[in-house]
Computed example of a mutant assay.
Amino acid sequence: MKTTLWATLTANGNYAQSSSENPPKKEALDDFAAHAIAAGNFIVGRRTFEGMLENGSVGGGPFADLDIVVVSGNAGDLPGVTVARSPQEALNYLQQKGHQTALIGAGADLHNAFLSKGLVDEVIFNVVPVMEGKGLNLLIDKDNYQYKHVQLLDCKPLGSGVIQLRYAMDR
């Protein structure tokens, strides 16, 4: 199964944090929806999923017919989704459902869990035109300085200053 990690980054390289002062760019959200629909699924962390519930992003619309997997060690029942306890359990579930691609959608901690376990084949970064102070980073190993070379597959503007970079990763 091919796994694609999708993330929004700031112009200075941080994992972009959304807030009322810095809402997500429409172009990035539309791009995520297009990738999720193409994959037929997406995987998110519990806090991200709860945020999606609060702002009405799930429960209908473009995500109505998708397999949504929430990875959490302490989530109870969540409406309309499957809860997995680990990244590998999430991938196993989607593979058993017949999916050829898994889209890892949101949450820096979850992204880092997939990256540190070497479970990512491709990354899609939407770089938004904002600089951020203290921020989060995507890491392949939080304890050691490591390098993982990637191959640029595509680079394109999405509009409103958002640039998309797509890289292949060796597993």
Rank of each mutant, 00 (worst) to 15 (best):
A106R: 15
N92F: 02
S160L: 11
I43D: 11
N12E: 05
L5M: 04
A28E: 14
K2E: 10
V120N: 02
G98Q: 04
A34F: 06
N22C: 00
R85G: 15
V44E: 05
L138A: 05
K26L: 09
A90Q: 03
V130L: 13
R166I: 10
A33M: 05
I68M: 06
H35L: 12
D109C: 08
N112E: 02
V120L: 07
G135M: 09
V150A: 15
G80R: 03
Y15Q: 08
G60R: 12
K25A: 00
S116D: 02
D141G: 12
L53V: 09
G135C: 10
A11W: 11
V150T: 15
Q95Y: 00
S57Y: 01
N137Q: 09
E54D: 15
E21G: 08
T101V: 13
I124Q: 08
V69W: 00
N74M: 03
Q96L: 07
A64H: 04
R47Q: 00
Q88V: 05
I68Q: 01
V127I: 15
G45Y: 07
Q17K: 11
Q164H: 06
G118N: 12
P129H: 01
V71Y: 03
K2I: 11
G56M: 10
F114N: 01
G45D: 08
A75L: 04
S19P: 06
T48I: 02
R85A: 15
H35R: 13
L136D: 15
R46N: 01
M169R: 14
A108F: 06
A34I: 05
V162G: 00
D31C: 04
E27M: 10
T10M: 09
L53G: 01
G118R: 13
A90G: 08
A168G: 13
E122W: 00
E122I: 08
V123R: 14
E21M: 04
L103Q: 06
T4K: 07
G118H: 10
Y145K: 14
L136G: 15
A28R: 10
K134V: 06
L152W: 05
G13D: 02
N55D: 13
S72L: 09
D65E: 14
C155N: 12
L138D: 01
Q164F: 03
D170R: 05
D143L: 12
N12A: 10
G159I: 11
A7D: 02
Q88S: 09
T10Q: 05
P24L: 06
T4P: 09
F63H: 02
A38H: 09
G118S: 11
A106M: 12
L152I: 05
L29I: 04
D67C: 04
A7T: 10
P157K: 00
A113L: 15
Q17R: 12
L78C: 07
I140V: 15
S116N: 09
T48V: 03
T3Y: 04
E21S: 11
Y167P: 13
S86L: 06
E50V: 08
A168S: 15
A84Q: 07
I68A: 01
L115S: 01
L115W: 00
E54R: 13
K117S: 03
R166T: 12
